[in-house]
């Protein structure tokens, strides 16, 4: 297929259009993914998460610069929320990365969540494949920064970087809410601020409570300062970039990379099954008007959702006899 060849050749226009078709769930885009899939799995996928305003984009921007210095190619996916009221979105994270706009080794693409169930837009998983197939050495994903997405990132990324900043008030809460479990690397941004010491000590304490880390990898805590000295900020970014590389190497050395890849495979299979089985059924129900009828029945309390679901399932699902 022409498009496959173009994407594999690194053609940005073809790739961005393919991502769009995947977002818009155009059927033939799925076919392209089928062709591309066997060519993926080479890129190191890094997820950046942390509350809004923690400085994720700026951090990614600097990591990209550092990776470029090391002659690596990078794809960046920036995810912003879709407005639940209008379906529109403002995708504004690109602003911090515009200095790489003219660098052919960097491809930045913004995506809206479009209210995808389960957090990270399904398209993000596919878009990672596209960038991977383009031959990018690294694919970096920036999450929205709130809610369930933070935890979902682990299903897509090999290395998860959690960016924290003192003074936001909710860092410790976030850590308690599950961020600790998914973090491979912590960064305390603006570590020269009041409250950074406290945040650092809290983190160290929480990590000390963990008995065992998978692969013996205890998430390092990197402190990034930038006041008055661009040089020292850059040094902490070098450290971050190196640490990300070490984490990946550790996954390989300890044979854990397979687990992460398997996790993504399971998720994608789940999603693909849902799409393959549920979508056509839903389409039929909506088109035939049956969906509306059933909703009415529910409203009148004539029946319940479970009975209806079993009825529909028995109509469409033919289970082979055991």
């Amino acid at each position: 297929m022409e498009i496959t060849k173009k994407v594999r050749g690194g053609d940005v226009r073809a790739a961005t259009r393919l991502i769009r078709n995947l977002e818009d769930r155009i059927p033939h885009a799925k076919d392209t993914i089928k062709h591309i899939f066997s060519h993926t799995g080479k890129a190191h996928v890094i997820g950046f998460t942390g509350s809004p305003g923690a400085g994720k984009s700026t951090m990614i921007d600097s990591v990209v610069a550092e990776l470029r210095k090391r002659d690596k190619t990078v794809g960046v996916l920036l995810v912003d929320p879709t407005s639940p009221f209008t379906g529109g979105a403002i995708l504004g994270d690109r602003i911090r990365m515009q200095r790489h706009a003219l660098d052919p080794g960097v491809f930045v693409r913004s995506l809206a969540t479009r209210g995808a169930l389960g957090g990270l837009s399904k398209a993000v998983g596919d878009a990672i494949h596209v960038m991977d197939a383009m031959g990018k050495d690294y694919v970096i994903v920036e999450t929205v920064g709130t809610g369930q997405q933070e935890v979902d990132i682990i299903n897509h990324a090999h290395t998860v970087v959690v960016v924290l900043v003192p003074g936001m008030g909710d860092e410790i809460q976030a850590i308690k809410a599950g961020i600790l479990e998914i973090a491979d690397v912590f960064v305390i941004n603006k570590a020269d601020r009041d409250g950074a010491g406290k945040l650092y000590r809290e983190l160290v304490y929480m990590l000390s409570m963990v008995d065992e880390f998978p692969g013996g990898w205890k998430p390092p805590i990197i402190r990034a300062e930038n006041i008055f000295d661009a040089d020292s900020f850059q040094r902490s970014l070098d450290e971050l970039t190196n640490t990300i590389g070490q984490h990946y190497q550790n996954l390989i050395d300890k044979g854990l990379l397979g687990d992460r890849i398997r996790r993504k495979a399971v998720l994608e299979l789940n999603e693909a099954l849902l799409a393959a089985i549920l979508d056509p059924v839903l389409t039929k129900l909506v088109e035939s008007g049956e969906m509306k009828e059933m909703t009415e029945k529910l409203l009148k309390k004539e029946t319940d959702p479970y009975t209806l679901a079993e009825m529909i399932a028995s109509r469409y699902l033919v289970m082979p006899a055991e």
Binding site: G92, I95, R96, F228
Partner: peptide, 12 residues
Amino acid sequence: EVYGEFRDPAMY
């Protein structure tokens, strides 16, 4: 060079 360049974070 010394202090770094600042770009508008343009928050919404």
